[in-house]
Nucleic acid binder design. Structure first.
Lengths: 189, 189
DNA sequence: TAAGTTGCCTAAAGGTCTTAGGCAAACGAA
DNA sequence: TTCGTTTGCCTAAGACCTTTAGGCAACTTA
């Protein structure tokens, strides 16, 4: 029948769009086949299985996120960098909720090692260069930043902050203020 | 055939255990039926559908978590309360990863209103009474605490902090120190 | 004890995942 | 140019999960 031009690449990109539309959990090999107007079995020449598809989408999302973060960080330092970095995460999650969920997909060690995960922690460390932290506090701070960003964005996306004043954007802004203050005045026990 | 004594309650509890064993996503009506040595269709007298089961597990987890938190908070204030509260979340997630994942299940508005969600935010507010914050900063701080706790626990559970020094328990302890310091010295822009 | 309710069952339809094997078109080499 | 190989999608089929419909036997209740 018709040549559809299937490719792991194209399937991954279409899968990412599908995730943003219907949610990452609802991404299905069958639905993807439907969108390419092709029989389901045809996809298995390009994808190992359903998990393989999800892994590829996750890796795509991590790359996109890292690319955006790298661009946002260029030429910035201190609170400016902190804010830009945080906004990249938050904006990406709001623009691409399915992809953001994909970025949280539990990768197997092999895929994780090949992912952009390393870039993310490197960039977080780079932000801390604008503050006066040495190891091991730097690592603790990296983990704290990751926790706050991921936690806030997740909860906001899940609707945890809606339907109540003040606006969640306001809380976000004050959260960044708070983090900046905390990093400038990091407590040593 | 044999009387199995099925009940929405019993199914929910068994579902929660199943979640802890195989992960919340893998909780399935079929597997549950298998565990009760009963035909799948029989469960549909007690559960509306698969989503209903997951909703019930989520509500159970939220209640358990709120109960633990309430007990931990009794008679504590300030950093002591903050630490106890945070540890409840972290310990619960480590002991019951499936239930913790269930607690993040996106409830429909009706179920959400009937959930223990309200108790959670009330308790978080109660912790802040030990610090000197007024509205709207109090709400911002509630959201920040929720973000940090949820974010840290999620990332830790996902293995984000493993395989690298220092120990994640150390980072957790320093995170609580940092939050305490931040709340005692909340920045006003 | 008759009537109604409860609790689990069989049957069946529809959806997803995955593997096996086939055919035709495109490609590459002699 | 032609013949063999590869590529790309297909049909077929098995396995599992979800959900609805209808049945039967045992227990409850008046």
């Amino acid at each position: 029948m018709a040549y559809a031009g299937l490719t792991a690449e194209r399937l991954t990109r279409a899968g990412a769009e599908l995730a943003d539309e219907v949610g990452f959990d609802q991404v299905t090999v069958s639905e993807l086949a439907r969108r390419f107007d092709v029989k389901v079995a045809s996809l298995y020449s390009h994808l190992k299985n359903s998990r393989d598809l999800k892994t590829r989408i996750a890796l795509l999302a991590l790359e996109e996120l890292a690319d955006r973060a790298a661009e946002a960080l260029a030429g910035r330092a201190g609170k400016d960098a902190l804010t830009a970095f945080g906004n990249v995460y938050r904006d990406y999650a709001r623009e691409h909720p399915g992809r953001y969920a994909a970025a949280q997909f539990r990768l197997d060690p092999e895929a994780a090692a090949a992912s952009a995960g390393g870039r993310h922690s490197q960039m977080t460390r780079a932000i801390l260069r604008g503050y006066d932290l040495t190891e091991p506090d730097q690592t603790h701070a990296v983990r704290l930043l990751g926790s706050v960003f991921h936690g806030f964005v997740s909860l906001e996306l899940a609707g945890g902050f809606s339907h109540s004043a003040p606006d969640s954007a306001e809380s976000w802004s004050r959260t960044l203020d708070a983090l900046d203050a905390l990093l400038r005045n990091w407590p040593t026990p």
